[in-house]
Design a protein around this nucleic acid. Structure first.
Lengths: 336, 336
DNA sequence: GTGAAAGCGCTAACAC
DNA sequence: GTGTTAGCGCTTTCAC
């Protein structure tokens, strides 16, 4: 390993001169500058970030805790985060928590030991306690895609309620009267807000909310699949279904197909998220799009704000969704 | 921030005693140990990894360069890598290269400056030059999913040829005679080996290779879609198609559906990779499965070997694929 | 079984 | 415009 000392010797100047050339931190004569630059090139000098960070008492790395990077939704957000951190010369330490609290704590400590400048928590089982603890330790923090009850913390999330409204209104506008909904997760999850948006829209259109048409899923394919089978067994089956994520929506399509029903003629389906997969279903899925990359970018922006000033005011940002109409929605066959 | 010094003061022992308790590096009296442990707990002491690594001249972090973490195939491999690195107390610095050489170089330098213990390169445009440079600098390295011509470097990849054979033989066994293939990427890509496996299997079964049935795609949905439209316009269209990845296979299914052809009755389709999406297509996709997690795990194993002994022999590992029969393949309607 | 002290590679305050 | 020096928090040799 070549160090700054080697460069200094080679260039025939002092260590501090080299340092100042590197960091542009004070005036250096043109001659010295050139000799230093030559020496650095010749020796292929790479400054040791460890030493620099130790001395400066700050690093250029940030921790990102996601439940599962192999989940396309989180992966897109992660890309948004990684892209803008790269632009700002920060690097990302990746942590997969699987929503497991113990792993989250372990990772959090690891990140703190690594002196990260800040931490981005992406969704799933962010514990109030852990967040409070981190706040207390003055670790710059931003929470993505999940509200943390009773705690004031920088967060960015999607306006799930608005998304639920968009989906529901779209189906109503097409003429549907019996619209089912497949929720997921617990009461605090983003999905709950989507369901609320669905119910509110129904009310606002003077349509009754039928509890039998609200099914409970778990964000997985299977649960959408099963829910639709149950729904279609009802004496008065729905003509449309709003699934709270794309994967369940795909399950819906499969179940309908299995029963010989055509989508969208016999059953309309709307998803949520607009992951890449949604473009490739058969037929392509109508869905509510979350601005995933933008979520990541914004999250990093909030984090930076906090890093630069730990006392900066808490910001809670909500991003709007967008309806992407593809080919799984149409008017119902018999308007009753 | 509480330091080791604070702990030492609190516990009434020397700094070195604290250090030895933490690292279990020499005998310490039971009394001292207890007082140190209490002090650490009370002060919530977190050892500073930066300082430790600087002193020890080695870190517990490894760099992972992937083209795009939002690509499900890479994401699964990344999980494999991250999971086993966590187990071994290493953390991952995530880098998205987009296959761009400049970004790869930038990231590589950044990783070296961060003193990473080693680097995992995942696929896509790994340049021979860069790898050689890294070898020369004695950076522990492992390349995943791509052969680097003319360079001896630790690598782990799938036996693509065998996978191509599996897919093709499956279709032949079902009775297909006109089997198309949709390749992708350049001559050196993994896909090329899959095509070779396809051709070899045809020969071994005394079936001619018809150049018109070999289409060139680009791993994207669209290209599979277009290829099938072209193929079905042929005077003698194929009864089956082997697409070199799942996404293109999904494109094939869509194109067939658009023409009113049923899969698998009118056209059989086999994909490659077995990404999660493959279970959710309509009908579920028959495909050749790559052991993505295992690839990640094995990659980390090779890297560790290198980290522990930079002169350890080069290992090039090939993992077997597996045919996953779902519901896009069946016997052709008219065996001619 | 314990403590003192040197030093990892770098930056920044302080001289000149 | 340049150099000397202290010290970031830790580990480890050396001395007792």
């Amino acid at each position: 390993m070549t160090t700054i000392k080697d460069v200094a010797n080679r260039a025939g100047v002092s260590i501090s001169t080299v340092s100042h050339v590197i960091n542009n931190s004070r005036a250096v004569s043109e001659e010295s500058r050139q000799r230093v630059e030559e020496a650095m090139a010749e020796l292929d000098y790479q400054p040791n970030t460890l030493a620099r960070s130790l001395r400066r008492q700050q690093t250029q790395s940030i921790g990102m805790i996601v439940p599962d990077i192999a989940n396309p939704f989180f992966a897109e957000i992660a890309r948004g985060i990684e892209d803008s951190s790269f632009q700002q010369n920060y690097s990302i330490i990746l942590c997969n928590s699987e929503g497991d609290l113990e792993k989250q704590v372990a990772y959090t400590n690891l990140l703190i030991q690594n002196q990260v400048a800040g931490i981005v928590f992406v969704a799933a089982g962010v514990s109030t306690e852990l967040v409070e603890d981190l706040q207390h330790r003055e670790v710059p923090l931003v929470v993505v895609d999940r509200a943390v009850p009773r705690v004031e913390v920088n967060s960015v999330m999607t306006n799930h309620n608005q998304g639920g409204r968009l989906a529901t209104q779209h189906l109503i506008d097409l003429g549907h009267r019996r619209i089912a909904c497949i929720s997921a997760g617990s009461g605090l999850s983003p999905s709950a807000d989507r369901v609320t948006g669905y119910m509110e829209t129904l009310w606002e259109n003077n349509m009754p909310v039928n509890k039998k048409l609200i099914m409970h899923g778990d964000f997985q394919y299977e649960s959408g699949y099963k829910a639709v089978h149950t729904l279609l067994d009802l004496p008065e089956p729905p003509t449309a279904v709003f699934a709270c994520n794309d994967l369940m929506a795909v399950g819906c399509i499969s179940a309908a197909a299995e029963r010989g029903l055509r989508v969208p003629q016999d059953l309309s389906v709307v998803g949520f998220d607009n992951v890449r997969l949604a473009s490739f279903t058969n037929p392509p899925l109508t869905t509510v799009s979350q601005p995933m990359r933008q979520i990541g970018t914004l999250a990093l922006e909030l984090l930076m704000e906090r890093i630069n000033d730990i006392d900066s005011p808490v910001r809670i940002e909500q991003l709007d969704t967008e309806l992407v109409v593809r080919r799984t929605t149409a008017a119902p066959r018999h308007t009753d």
